[in-house]
Design a binder for these strands. Structure first.
Lengths: 169, 169
DNA sequence: GACATTTACATAGATATCTATATTTTAGGC
DNA sequence: GCCTAAAATATAGATATCTATGTAAATGTC
């Protein structure tokens, strides 16, 4: 990202006035996700990437081990993508693989001490930025709009599952 | 994306109950963007990619030509990324480059007839899916929550510009 | 007006993702 | 029990993105 701060050409609202509300919403959501993702990626302590942090964060929040496929499903990425992410986490010593006694195909991914340390370090780095967003950002009632977005996400997720089942039949 | 439709392990709400509302919101937004992006990418008529469609759509909506840098800024991607996207659009014959008479460094990107055709074809493909989202998706008042998200996006965008200026000083 | 700086774009190399497919292990039908 | 199908993961190859840097053209300073 090398963009220079040029004369403000920012569009006040995503899309055109004529676009349907849902299309504008999705456009806006895409831009927010993109902006937040870029900012977040820059803050991460090397060698941690967004995908890698996501895995550490999830396993620590849920306080459990998960398999490659479970993680791939949770983050909605392809299984080889998660295999690659986990492989790098292993190389960095942030997770370790445990074999399943009953099924030799399955690998359980668990966070190591080093993994917990860098995840907590990341949280410390991120927190002030989130706080700035809270205090200096727009004063909206985020809890009020959260259920609508959760419903939308759930619908898209269900539709995705339906389409996959259609392909498999 | 090879995920199988496994027993429903969907988390009802993004993140943990203990997470701050804004963090949950950003997590939810990231998941929606991811889901929508995946679905959209699958629907695009080859050889069009999401980034390529975005450029065609923008130039046609604004009914103008823009430079590589202007497009990179608009989509918040690095300039070489947009150079690459435009190069592929040129190879497919969807845009054409016009030189600037006064400044030989500048390239103006304009949509061709073939570009307009495939953009309109894409709209036709997408529309039924958007309609399904409208009719079968959650019945929320999207117009009501749009301003809050626009404000959030604007804040993140402004913060990004501030940080870039800080680096340049 | 010469020279350093800035600007617009291109190129090179690295990474993360995807799809397609291979490999290994388990489960099921006969 | 055997043999096929399904499941979990790995490998290979392609693409899109990034950062760092190169190149050419315009700008500005003295």
């Amino acid at each position: 990202m090398n963009a220079k701060a040029r004369p403000d050409k920012t569009i006040p609202e995503a899309g055109l006035a004529s676009d349907p509300a849902l299309f504008k919403l999705l456009t806006e959501i895409d831009m927010i996700a993109h902006l937040a993702s870029n900012e977040f990626a820059r803050l991460l302590p090397p060698p941690l990437t967004e995908a890698q942090f996501g895995v550490l964060n999830r396993l620590m929040r849920l306080d459990c081990k998960e398999t490659i496929s479970e993680l791939a499903d949770a983050f909605q990425v392809a299984q080889p993508t998660m295999s690659s992410t986990v492989k790098k986490l292993v190389q960095h010593g942030f997770v370790e693989i445990a074999a399943n006694e009953k099924d030799a195909r399955i690998k359980h991914v668990g966070v190591t001490g080093a993994g917990k340390a860098i995840r907590n370090e990341t949280i410390k780095i991120i927190t002030p930025h989130l706080n700035e967003l809270q205090t200096e950002g727009p004063a909206e009632d985020w809890n009020a709009i959260l259920p609508a977005l959760t419903a939308l996400r759930d619908f898209l997720d269900q539709r995705r599952l339906r389409q996959m089942q259609r392909l498999a039949s």
